[in-house]
């Protein structure tokens, strides 16, 4: 089996700016993959190279084994891209837009699937409305539908939820998750870290055109400085534990531990100091911490 997305040693310059610098990335078929990174990191550039909107200076990219340059017809048929910008053709209605897009992909009679797409994205009652008259959120839904007219096995969404209201975000995620369950590979870039945390099985972090972290979401979360402990003690915090303290919250102490085993050690030290724990809660690290740490230092 070919990987859904295979990127090997890809570099891309814009003038003096190195937008991508030797990127290697493999996404297996069926994954829900997140691509994170600050603005200007090169996420959209990588997507453009995959879709053929831009051309790599060096390196190879392929979609399910089809090279994006030499076999562009195949690779584009296998790929559905929701662009970052809210673009639309003001001359056409929603249905016309979707029919034209089907035609571009060589599909003449696609109305059954178009109707289904519109149904799932709550667009049915806008089918004959001109694109110009749709709200931003509605246009975004049409963009998603356009990317899916040819039922691509690999779906790329470039910050699809930026500036989108909560309700639409819910609708979109339910729909995309369903597609993923049905076997579509999903590559998502987003600014909302909770979103990536909730949806993606694996995550790559991009910074200045380089991949600075690439792992399963769980491993990335685990790698984030163990955990935080908030507790109330029967006395003062012993001196040995002082280096772990982040802050005092009322009567509680907030401590940072490097790993879960460190929790054992801490409890032992408390016992030795003759203290008892009156209340305790553990706080999970979130992706934001990982992100700040990885992207901050690299």
């Amino acid at each position: 089996m070919f990987p859904a997305v295979d990127v090997r040693q890809v570099s891309k310059r814009y003038g003096s700016l190195q937008a991508l610098d030797g990127v290697d990335l493999r996404i297996e078929a069926g994954e829900f993959f997140g691509l994170l990174g600050p603005n200007g990191a090169g996420k959209t550039t990588l997507i453009n190279l995959l879709s053929g909107l831009a051309r790599a200076d060096s390196g190879q990219l392929s979609i399910l084994g089809r090279d994006v340059a030499a076999q562009y017809r195949d690779s584009r048929r296998l790929l559905g891209v929701v662009p970052q910008e809210l673009v639309f053709d003001p001359f056409f209605t929603v249905r016309e837009t979707l029919r034209l897009q089907s035609g571009y992909f060589g599909l003449r009679h696609n109305d059954a699937w178009i109707d289904e797409l519109m149904h799932h994205l709550d667009l049915t009652d806008k089918a004959d409305t001109n694109m110009r008259r749709l709200s931003g959120g509605m246009k975004r839904r049409v963009l998603v539908a356009q990317a899916l007219v040819h039922k691509p096995p690999v779906i790329v969404l470039d910050e699809p939820t930026a500036g989108v209201d909560v309700e639409l975000r819910q609708i979109m995620w339910r729909f995309i998750q369903r597609l993923n369950r049905e076997g579509h590979t999903v590559l998502l870039t987003t600014h909302y870290l909770e979103e990536a945390e909730a949806l993606c099985g694996r995550i790559a972090m991009l910074k200045r055109g380089r991949i600075v972290a690439l792992d399963s979401t769980q491993n990335l979360l685990n790698s984030a400085a163990g955990c935080r402990v908030r507790m109330r003690l029967s006395g003062e915090l012993p001196a040995v534990l002082a280096p772990h303290m982040i802050e005092r919250v009322g009567e509680d102490y907030l401590l940072a531990l490097s790993s879960y085993p460190a929790l054992e050690t801490m409890l032992m030290q408390l016992r030795e100091a003759g203290l008892t724990v009156l209340e305790m809660s553990l706080q999970q690290p979130d992706l934001e911490e990982v992100f700040l740490r990885v992207v901050g230092k690299a």
């Binding site: 673009v87 053709d89 003001p90 034209l100 897009q101 571009y104 356009q146």
Partner: peptide, 17 residues
């Protein structure tokens, strides 16, 4: 027009030679 409004991407993303 398609370039300025950006909707030329719909054509450029498609398998059109």
């Amino acid at each position: 027009q398609s370039k300025i409004t950006g909707n030329l991407v719909f054509v450029l993303l498609a398998p059109i030679s």
